[in-house]
């Protein structure tokens, strides 16, 4: 099994454009400084080191237990993603991604997926009743009591995380809450507690970025020099390290560095002026035309 990426291969990926982001100066402490200070730095998150993951799915099962979710099967098929994707009953899923090899000897990487807990979440910005909230500590949490079930959050999410209970008369949006309740009690999220090989590290964003940077610079041959989640849609609370390009692990690599809510913010900001302008124009026209009608 090949889990190292040679410098030559890395340059090859960079050259083909699959690693367009490889220019990120991750080895440069000065460049990371803005991430380490500031309010975002003190939010909690999880660093997922996919090079350490052994694909045991203890995190997936711990999540089910913590959130009282039904099991998908008595035994999970080895080395195969099961269920196929995140669902209303699976908030945390270990995906098995083929990154190379042939059909007889596929080279497979396990990678845990769940809500990324964006720093500026699209789901929070679009929710008409503020049922989605980004807590001050970091988790993006959902309140079913407020929710009207419009499903705008599902479509707005760049990672396709929120899922819906389609077969319920009283349906909820379901997704990972980063075990916000456990965090409040000073405990670790269930998945982090369950991981037997420390592939999951819980901490503040600043700590996690420093740790990721230390791991990559400590073993440059073991990682590609990129932290997924550092800048994607202006940053996420879950951060990932890997030794293959992230698109091979099923991550979207076309995400902008700007927050998605900016798309609409720019329009919403103009609306008061538009409303006032139209109101004044029509009011003036009504007054003028009424005056003219009286004179005639």
């Amino acid at each position: 099994m090949k889990d190292k990426l040679s410098r030559r291969e890395f340059l090859k990926y960079a050259g083909t454009g699959t690693l367009a982001f490889a220019v990120l100066p991750i080895f440069d402490r000065a460049a990371l400084a803005p991430y380490l200070s500031g309010e975002n730095g003190s939010q909690v998150g999880v660093l997922v080191d996919t090079t350490r993951c052994i694909g045991c799915r203890a995190c997936q099962l711990a999540c089910k237990e913590k959130n009282n979710l039904p099991a998908d099967a008595p035994t999970l098929p080895p080395n195969r993603t099961f269920p196929e994707s995140l669902s209303a009953t699976t908030f945390s899923l270990v995906e098995f991604r083929r990154v190379g090899g042939d059909d007889q000897h596929p080279e497979i990487r396990p990678v845990k997926k769940q809500c990324m807990h964006c720093l500026e979440p699209a789901c929070v910005s679009v929710c008409p009743v503020a049922a989605m909230q980004k807590t001050a500590r970091g988790p993006v949490v959902y309140d079913a009591e407020k929710c009207i079930g419009c499903r705008y959050c599902m479509l707005a999410c760049p990672f396709n995380v929120p899922k819906f209970e389609w077969d319920s008369a009283n349906p909820r949006i379901r997704k990972c809450q980063m075990c916000a309740d456990l965090i409040e009690q000073g405990k670790l999220p269930a998945c982090v507690q369950a991981c037997p090989v420390q592939a999951l590290t819980f901490g503040t964003r600043a700590e996690l970025i420093a740790e990721a940077q230390a791991r990559v610079s400590g073993a440059p041959a073991k990682y590609i020099p990129y932290i997924y989640g550092l800048n994607e849609v202006a940053g996420t609370s879950f951060l990932y390290l890997a030794n293959v390009p992230f698109d091979q692990l099923g991550f979207a690599v076309n995400l902008p560095d700007t927050p998605l809510p900016d798309n609409t913010r720019q329009v919403l900001e103009k609306l008061p002026a538009v409303a006032a302008g139209i109101g004044l124009f029509l009011g003036g026209a009504a007054w003028w035309n009424a005056r003219r009608a009286r004179h005639e």
């Binding site: 910005s125 008409p128 503020a130 049922a131 609409t264 913010r265």
Partner: peptide
């Protein structure tokens, strides 16, 4: 709920 649970950032 849209009447009293406000989120002015939401187009919806």
């Amino acid at each position: 709920h849209v009447l009293w649970m406000w989120n002015p950032h939401s187009v919806m």
